[in-house]
């Protein structure tokens, strides 16, 4: 598996001709129908979210799902007045950007070292990385809160939000997996020429793992952008809250007072969902089983 053939297995039919012929036309039609039905079941809530965000009055009749007119942007104005969308989006952006930056910089260094360098303690460190994936975040919740909020005083700060997510371990695996595919001779030659490891990483390794970079950014993006529990615990000031938190607070506290609570919530949900969905649809080729499956399996 080289970097050039990434994603190729997904486009190659996995079942050889003999088996396919036996499936028959009827089977294929049935399968296509079932797949499409499932796909629509998956997409309908998103369609309903969008349509609901444009309706002035909630219409829960079946016909209300396919309105013929009377669509309005009023719900977006309503939610913006309640939670200041732009400010929340900026907070989400800084939180996510910080995590992506930390993951790309430190994850790249770690992935390269784990795959291409031999040093004392590498095996032990790799085992530690594997072990960390098993430690569930819920156990760390209370001690992390005590340490970060009470110990370091980082409540209502971007650093406090970012710290527990700073380096995405799955991304380290993806980087390591990519670096493992590169021939060690490549790096040995550069070393003989007297290049430092950082220089080798920057001008030899980095250009070769550019596809991995995009996969890692996509993969890392959805973590902090969608994260609710941690930023919810540590932000009490509304002007520091990421959108997921301010929308959830609106949902559980304020929505009852609004004229069309569902409409406003759905408008906020669309704003929260749009960047992740757009990024994913635009770059879905990089979000394949070969890219990520190998990373998850280690």
């Amino acid at each position: 598996m080289s970097t050039r053939t990434l994603g190729a297995p997904e486009t190659a039919p996995a079942v050889e001709p003999v088996a396919r012929r036996r499936t028959g036309t009827l089977g294929r039609v049935l399968r296509a129908a079932a797949l499409t039905a499932f796909a629509l079941a998956f997409l309908f809530p998103f369609y309903y979210m969008f349509i609901g965000s444009l309706q002035a009055e909630p219409d829960t009749s079946p016909a209300g799902a396919f309105p013929t007119g009377g669509l309005t942007l009023g719900n977006y104005r309503e939610i913006n007045a309640e939670i200041h969308l732009l400010r929340s989006l900026v907070n989400s952006g800084i939180f996510t950007g910080g995590v992506i930056l930390g993951t790309v910089v430190f994850g790249l260094l770690a992935g390269y070292a784990l795959a291409q360098l031999s040093f004392r303690g590498r095996g032990a460190l790799f085992n530690l990385v594997l072990l960390v994936q098993v430690v569930p975040f819920q156990l760390l919740l209370i001690p992390l809160y005590v340490l970060i909020v009470r110990g370091y005083g980082l409540a209502d700060s971007y650093l406090g939000m970012i710290l527990p997510f700073l380096i995405n371990t799955t991304a380290v695996f993806v980087f390591r997996q990519f670096f493992l595919q590169l021939p060690p001779d490549l790096f040995a030659a550069a070393r003989v020429d007297g290049a430092s490891e950082l220089r080798i990483l920057w001008s030899v390794a980095l250009p070769l793992v550019r596809p991995a970079l995009l996969t890692v950014v996509l993969l890392t993006f959805i973590g902090p952008w969608n994260e609710f529990l941690w930023p919810f615990l540590i932000t009490k000031q509304t002007d520091m809250q990421p959108l997921a938190v301010s929308l959830a607070n609106y949902l559980s506290n304020v929505a009852a007072r609004a004229a069309n609570p569902y409409g406003a919530v759905l408008a906020g949900a669309c704003v929260l969902a749009a960047p992740a969905v757009a990024l994913f649809v635009a770059f879905q080729k990089h979000f394949t089983s070969t890219n990520i499956g190998s990373g998850v399996k280690g």
Binding site: F38, F42, G52, F228, L251, A269, L272, F287
Partner: peptide
């Protein structure tokens, strides 16, 4: 279609499920 719910925030999809 299958991956979109996974990449979307829980808070966003909770909104439409409530509805």
């Amino acid at each position: 279609a299958y991956y979109v719910p996974y990449v979307t925030a829980s808070v966003a999809v909770v909104g439409v499920w409530l509805f």
